[in-house]
Design a protein around this nucleic acid. Sequence first.
DNA 1: CCTCACGACTAAACCGGTACAGAAGCCGGA
DNA 2: TCCGGCTTCTGTACCGGTTTAGTCGTGAGG
Lengths: 354, 354
Amino acid sequence: MSKKPTISDVAHEAGVSKGLVSFVVNGRPGVSAATRERVLAAAAELGWRPNPNARSLTTRSAYALGLVVLRDPEIIGSDPFFPAFISGVESVLSDRGRVMLLSVVPDEERELDTYRKLAAESRVDGVFVTDLRHRDPRIALLAELALPAVTLGHADVPSDFPVIDRDYGKGIAAVVSRLRELGHTRIAHVAGDERMLHGTHRRDQFTEAVRASGGTPIVVSGDFSPDSGAQATHALLGMAEKPTAIVFANDPMAMAGMAVAQELGLRLPDDLSITGMDGSEMSRYLFPPLATVGNDPAEWGRAAALSLLALIETGASDDVTLPDAEFIPRGSIAPPPQAAQPSSERPTAQPSSR
Amino acid sequence: MSKKPTISDVAHEAGVSKGLVSFVVNGRPGVSAATRERVLAAAAELGWRPNPNARSLTTRSAYALGLVVLRDPEIIGSDPFFPAFISGVESVLSDRGRVMLLSVVPDEERELDTYRKLAAESRVDGVFVTDLRHRDPRIALLAELALPAVTLGHADVPSDFPVIDRDYGKGIAAVVSRLRELGHTRIAHVAGDERMLHGTHRRDQFTEAVRASGGTPIVVSGDFSPDSGAQATHALLGMAEKPTAIVFANDPMAMAGMAVAQELGLRLPDDLSITGMDGSEMSRYLFPPLATVGNDPAEWGRAAALSLLALIETGASDDVTLPDAEFIPRGSIAPPPQAAQPSSERPTAQPSSR
DNA sequence: CCTCACGACTAAACCGGTACAGAAGCCGGA
DNA sequence: TCCGGCTTCTGTACCGGTTTAGTCGTGAGG
């Protein structure tokens, strides 16, 4: 292969100056149609693409977006959110001549340093802020760095960044409501990492829904990892007054919880109802199929990418509210076992066979 | 925030020329220790970091590595390999001043275009080639583009790229051997996507291991997705001569297979033994815990990153062979039903003899 | 004492684009 | 015919680094 062609090669080939070629590829006015064609033809023939590095130098734009993920390398594999989120982002970026830069960091210190580095080196034009934490230090840092950003969810600190969000509360309320309808009175929640906003939000939405229906919520903590889901389930099922239904804050914890219950000899869903959250692909292939609350990470990705691009290109971008999360009922929920209900409850017809 | 400092600012601050600052930050000889200190101090004080874009212009290096993933957006969430692989890559890159550029593409055409674009725009210094396919067109394309690369596994076409690989056959052989020991005679394999080399390799390694032990392999096809695992399991369990053990080509398919079996009323592992592959985090949290063959994607990532960096920096890099994949016995395997086992057997898996 | 090699440093060209001032060509109106 | 005023296009100065040729002392060798 010969050397990569440059804008000068194209200019020479088309018999015009560098500047004009630049005008053409950037769609600037003041170029005759005939010349435009000639330049475009020359560029196509030479297979020339403008070098973004050179371009960045004068335009002060990196033509790249960044995603920094703070996640324990050990458990990142069980998280179904990011790959799908990224593919959603990518579906928007691919047509826009921008690329995505990804960083996975193990601790908060390196996370912040990574943002500083991306900004100082002008590596990206903007970043996605996922997994918002309480009093998230990234908000202030990004503002200080003057790095455009969009946040997934509303931060609990002052932020001027556009927000992509989805009401998850209704979905959780629907879960609780359905469990109550089925006759459950002792409904537990295994919370996600409570340093993260969506960990506490989901917990609060759960407790609120249970209280609203006149029940008393039971909550144990987890951290979104399968391991924590298993431990929490052990704890719950070891209680004197076992819950008859467990609402997990994500699918991986629910999956691990299902396994623990089964290992203890419980039949699902007859002896215990279980639900997850996030609507992972795997959830429908479990036994019993895991009832969950949809989330569609790819949709988050698309919306976040569009919003961030708008912010970068126009300097402003509106908040986006995705459609409400929907409860996806599946076979992992059923009426509570009769024995567990000493007091008056509608005698629900229990399915005799499975 | 004030404007970002440039090399000229640092030079002025330290009272030297731009060129000297460049010498200092690149560790070139011919700079007195005193001056070096002064320059470094000025750089630190101003918080200056060399702009990689400007740098790229003359050094022809992008200071970035690329990963292009061809994956159906719908199922990428259930794939535990990439997030962990990426975190392995990142653990190497973070200290090296290079970043990682990620692209997720839905079809082969766009995949190849993405490589072309990355090369034409000098976005990356090299790429990781994962999920090798038969007669993979990327090998020739990358050679043509003169883009350095490392492949995960050996390509079946001539390739000059360094290879990162791990013997997976021994692990698979250990699985089969253990199942035979337990008394299984009808052992089936649910293959992964056979367009991918590791799909057919695993299948071949399975059939070979079964034949070597005097058995007759049963193979049905899948594509690594949970859905295909479920379908294949249905097909197998609908056969007149059902298999008593199923070896799945990855964990997600195995998980879906477990669910199908349980839904059909089979008790695991007593009625059916199941194994997965890739040693995903989730596998240990299932019921019964899924026996699998370890893989450690993060280790692939680290090795691939080191190899690719060496290739880029020195122009050559050796192949790397990772430690053999190891069978991880767990509760999902047991003797076949009604097995006339002359010797002592227990329903749970025993440590394999390796 | 002069020359020369060498270490430390500077100046300017260059990488591949963009931006902007201004030149050239063309047109219509006075 | 001359003069604006467009439109179209050129030339050149950047952007922030790297690289190379060359300058300037300084000390050793002849």
